[in-house]
Design a protein around this nucleic acid. Structure first.
Length: 490
RNA sequence: CGGGGAAUAGUUCAGAUGGCUAGAACGCUGCGUUUGGGACGCAGAGGUCGCAGGUUCAAGUCCUGUUUCCCCGACCA
């Protein structure tokens, strides 16, 4: 299918996903919406992301583990606020066996095999992990405990959108337990900062980080912090969170430890996660009319080499370009040699651009003659001729340069779509005309927040550290308020 | 869960007022010519028109029911 004429501001972003996802046809009558198949190319992007983030998580002292997919219903009943946030959108296992239908037309659920206690397919793993933690932790010597897992989770969303909201998705969830409140707060902010830096350095995304309002925070947390990226249409996309859980879960799951003074205490906990939504953020932030633009650090294929030949010079050109291939391969393993002879060169150019491959090297008769090659960079689609002797060094620098340039564009997008307003009129004008991030004063009253949402569709995205210090009259009611960032969220 | 729309080839769709032996584009297969920006010619394969009833000499088209999908809200990462 063609993807010609896609504009970055076109809200039908699903066109950008053609190379990386597909849909699964699930059973008839299934209420599951938006079942997502991640294609090999899309999964390779995820593996790149995963590998680099996993290293950073381990550098923070976390160890990877795996906890069960199924959570006993009673676990979710323990934390009242927590269950309020998830109970309504869970998949529930009620039976454990099928049997053949008597008329021989297939299988049906065996009514004899009803579970005494239903199992919930994890929407997040706090409860199942903390039940175990209560047995792992007895002494201050067991702390801090830092556990991470890479798993799938299920949330029975009423409305799904490819990559941004699917009923099943992949993520990483980190869970830490600490002796003191200070240590846990340090962890919450540390994880948030890890995400912010990861977004900048690997995904080439400038983000806004800060604390969430009461209505936006995670059910069961004292405070939630978020990582917000800005899409090209000015809408905001939250792709990561970090929660200060306080002692809420420790109390209900009875996690206790004996401190250095011999006293029994509840520890302080955090949890934080990012999901496949990150891929959505990358795609929607960087892509252009020709397709994806992937930052080199997460591109499954960083360089593609396209030999251009006719029958009479085929062997010579293949041999020559293979030499260039071998040379570049010393820099990166993520390289593709596209010698398919059943599609034309123009078709290949287009195809690799659609997939967002950062660098393309074209080699044809002219290059063979001049001992050169043609290098095209995906981010700005600039074409250069280059002596083959310089290829290695040039490619290495260019990958770096592309990564930096994409980040720079992301920074500029965020800066140029960030506004400060004092009046509600001004607020409404900017939100409706440009969306973006709008700094404004808000008194903290949920009614004002809700009123603003009803009027403008904008919600509080987060409050930055400086924002807390800036005060002024609430744009909605005029009462004393602090500065918050508003935006329209995906 | 509210409000709209749609269901016909692998995909996107066309088939006013019933006449169909159901089409197009792209994709797919074969042969040949091509290959520096999505190549071209020729030949082919591919559909019980979402499902179930009904009206009619005749239903993709009209009626009833049903299911699914998409979009917009509410809810959420």
């Amino acid at each position: 299918m063609s993807n010609k004429g896609i504009t970055p501001r076109n809200e039908d972003y699903s066109q950008w996903y053609l190379d990386i996802i597909d849909r699964a046809e699930l059973a008839e009558n299934s209420p599951v919406r938006g079942a997502m198949v991640i294609k090999p190319y899309g999964y390779a992007i995820w593996e790149k992301i995963k590998e680099q983030l996993d290293q950073r998580i381990k550098d923070r002292g976390c160890k990877n583990a795996y906890f069960p997919l199924f959570i006993p219903k009673s676990f979710l009943s323990k934390e009242a606020d927590h269950v309020k946030g998830f109970a309504k959108e869970c998949a529930i296992v009620t039976h454990y066996r099928l049997k053949e239908k008597e008329d021989g037309t297939g299988v049906e659920v065996d009514p004899e095999a009803k579970l005494d206690e239903e199992l919930i397919v994890r929407p997040t793993s706090e409860t199942i992990m903390y039940d175990t933690f209560s047995r792992w932790i007895t002494s201050w010597r067991d702390l801090p405990l830092k556990i991470n897992q890479w798993v799938n989770i299920v949330r029975w969303e009423r409305r799904t959108r490819p990559f941004l909201r699917t009923s099943e998705f992949l993520w990483q969830e980190g869970h830490t337990v600490h002796e003191t409140e200070e240590q846990s707060l340090e962890e919450v902010l540390g994880a948030l900062e890890m995400y912010r830096k990861f977004a900048r350095e690997v995904l080439a995304l400038e983000t806004l980080t800060g604390i969430k309002s009461e209505s936006e925070k995670f059910a069961g947390a004292n405070d939630t912090y978020g990582v917000e990226a800005m899409m090209q249409d000015g809408k905001s996309l939250q792709f990561g969170t970090s929660h200060d859980l306080g002692q809420n879960f420790a109390r209900v799951f009875n996690i206790q430890f004996t401190n250095k003074d011999g006293k029994l205490e509840y520890p302080w906990q955090t949890s934080w996660g990012v999901s496949t939504r990150m891929i959505g953020a990358v795609v929607m932030s960087h892509s252009d009319d020709k397709g994806l633009v992937l930052p080199p650090k997460i591109a499954p294929i960083k360089v593609v080499i396209i030999p251009i030949y006719s029958d009479n010079d085929k062997d010579k050109i293949l041999e020559y370009s293979k030499g260039v291939y071998n040379s570049v391969k010393e820099i990166t393993e993520d390289i593709e040699f596209d010698d398919r002879d059943y599609v034309t060169a123009g078709y290949k150019f287009n195809e690799w651009e659609k997939k967002g491959v950062p660098i393309r090297i074209e080699i044809g008769p002219r290059d063979l003659e001049n001992n050169q090659c043609v290098i095209v960079r995906r981010d700005i689609l600039e074409k250069n001729e280059l002596p083959v002797s310089n290829v290695q060094e040039y490619v290495e620098n260019l990958l770096d340069e592309i990564q930096k340039n994409i980040l720079k564009r992301s920074e500029e997008l965020l800066v140029s779509n960030t506004y400060s307003v004092d009046s509600y009129e001004e607020f409404k004008d900017i939100i409706s005309a440009r969306r973006g991030f709008v700094h404004a004063y808000w008194c903290g009253n949920p009614d004002c927040e809700e009123g603003i949402k009803v009027d403008t569709k904008a919600t509080t995205r987060c409050q930055t550290e400086e924002g807390r210090k800036n005060t002024g009259p609430c744009i909605y009611c005029g009462e004393h308020g602090e500065e918050w960032v508003f935006g329209i969220s995906y």
